[in-house]
Structures are given as C-alpha cells and as structure tokens.
Design a protein around this nucleic acid. Structure first.
Lengths: 165, 165
DNA sequence: TATTGTTATACTCTATAACTATA
DNA sequence: TATAGTTATAGAGTATAACAATA
C-alpha cells in the first residue's frame, strides 16, 4: 500500500532464501540427532559446547548468556537443568562475589563426546556432501565476514543502556 | 574416550560455526523486527510468506506444514491463531473432502506488506552491508546447492513411511 | 487400510518484572 | 547507582497420541 522503498536484488533474495532454508532443515535434523544421542536440546548443546570451547571449561553466567544470545533468566533456567543432570556446576567467583561461574563437568564432557561424532556425521551427510572443497572455502570465508560484522553489535543479555537512547 | 572417528577439516568447522553464528544472530534480530512491525512470530511470518509465494495464495495444510518443517498439530495451532487474527482463512477443498485449504486474506497481505520493508532493511544492515556483490553471489550459489540437496529428503509433517525402513 | 486434519494434553522454553546481593 | 544473578510468573510454542472423517 505504501511505495516500495525496500530494494533487494534477485541474487540477494536467493542468498537469503537459501540461507533460511538450509538453516531450518539443518537445524531440524541436528536437533533430532542431539535429542537422540544425548537428550540435549539445541540450546543446551550450544551451552555445553561453548563451555567446552572456553580455555578452562568455565564461564561467567553473563558471558555465557551473551554468547548464546540469551536472556539471563533463561540461562538460569537452563543452567539449573544442566546442573541437575550433573553436566555443569555453578560456583561463585573468587574475583567478584556477584558472579557465578559455570563449569563443565567430566560428565558434561562425556555427553559432548557422545554427541559430537553423530553431529559431525550429520553435517557431512546433510551439508558438506553436496559441496566441493572450494564451495566450503567460499562459505567459510563469506560467512566468517558476516559473523564478524554481526558480532560487532551484539544483543546483550541485559542491557540497561546508559543514555543516548 | 572412544577413538575419534568423526573427521572434520578446519575449513568445514569454520564454515559451520560461522553459519550457526550468523543464523542465530540474524534470526534473533529478525524475530524482533517481525514482532515490532507486525506482531508476528518467525514461524507465523514463514507461514504467511509461504502462502504469499504460492501462485494463488493458498495451500493445503499438509503441504504448508511440510514446507515450514512443522508437525501437523503445530500447524493447526498456528493456523487457528492466524485465522483468529483474520490473516488467513481455512476452507475445505473441492477436490478432496479431507483436505483443508489455507488462504491468505487481504489483511494477511497487508501485514506482509507492513513487515517486508523493515525485514529487507534489516537484511541489508545485518548481512549484506558487510559483503561484496561477489560474496553474495558465492553465498547464493553454494547455499542454493546445499538447499537443493537438503530438500531432496525432506522431513514430512506426518510420515507413517510405507516399508523399506 | 491410508491419509487429512483436529483435539487433548503435557511439556519445554523464553522473557519480563521484581527482588537480593555485591561493586 | 550499576551490575550479577535468581525467582515468580505467565505466555507462546511444540509434539505425541488418540480420534473422526474421507479416499
């Protein structure tokens, strides 16, 4: 009803549609694999994997929330679930009494280990099987740039923004 | 603890991580835009947009469920929500009395129209701004191939699979 | 007998607001 | 006053199983 100010090229549209389609189908398949292999939701896997990537397997709640794009209360919920299953522990930080440090337990690493092979297998089957090495290199290069750009202005888990609305 | 049979190259890993990161951040931002501009969830937008893409703006429930990767009961729920808002109608098919045909209403098209400009704007700002035309062309080419591959064996909304487990 | 769709149900997930405690 | 985290709560979304109707 208004004038069409939104402009997008056919190639851009194709890239976006293909991206969302791959994202949906891949995620759906991966969620099933994670559920079957380790009884993990996608977010729970992301949390464990993020901890596993961390140098000493531990991160503050807020940092973890920020990396997984999460509200803090939502992370509290998931952290409780994972702690109840013995996959992580929560302890206070020596540096800052306010902080809670989440740490991956050996059981948590075991679950990651149980889930990884099938995860990677699914990636090969669903994604990489149809692509050449050059394709994959292109994908890595372009998406890495896009990720860097997106990450530059990340949504924080709690941002009571100072001033300058 | 077991031998590491899962093999993945660094480039593949980089491509995958970047893909998931872009996917998460982009989706998070888009969900907010859709909520603000049209009070739509991401899935609801997908459903409306899928109908809008369809030649006459109408699809059977099962076909719609299959395209959006959805359980049929889940689609029934969303179709009720969208129908209550007057964005779609549901009617029986003349061909097959069992089928229900979902059709986009003018109000539904209006909502799509209200949401699209901001949607495309967000895409430019978040995704395309950091990429060259060549990057975008690469992305479109590679992801299109991946999407075609993934779509070849889609998860159906209800698949009591015949035989040949 | 197979397919289409709905319903009942139960559960997971998520965020907002209010609250406590520490810096 | 600002930040870290939890709790209470309330709502949205999802899927499974049982069901009714048509092919």
């Amino acid at each position: 009803m208004t004038r069409n100010t939104a402009e997008i090229t056919p190639t851009q549209l194709q890239a976006y549609f293909a991206f969302t389609e791959v994202s949906s189908l891949l995620r759906h398949a991966v969620e099933k694999q994670l559920r079957d292999a380790g009884d993990l939701s996608y977010v729970q896997f992301q949390l464990l994997a993020t901890l596993g990537d961390s140098p000493d397997g531990r991160l503050r709640m807020t940092d973890l929330a920020d990396r997984v794009v999460y509200s803090r209360s939502g992370l509290t919920y998931q952290a409780q679930v994972l702690e109840a299953r013995g996959l992580v522990t929560r302890g206070s930080s020596p540096d800052d009494e306010r902080s809670v440090v989440v740490a991956l337990t050996p059981a948590g690493r075991d679950v990651l280990g149980a889930v990884f092979p099938g995860h990677i297998d699914a990636l090969h089957r669903l994604l990489f099987a149809s692509l050449t090495d050059a394709d994959i290199a292109d994908l890595a290069r372009v998406l890495q740039r896009a990720a860097d750009h997106l990450r530059a202005d990340p949504p924080r888990s709690a941002a009571p923004r100072r001033r300058k609305a």
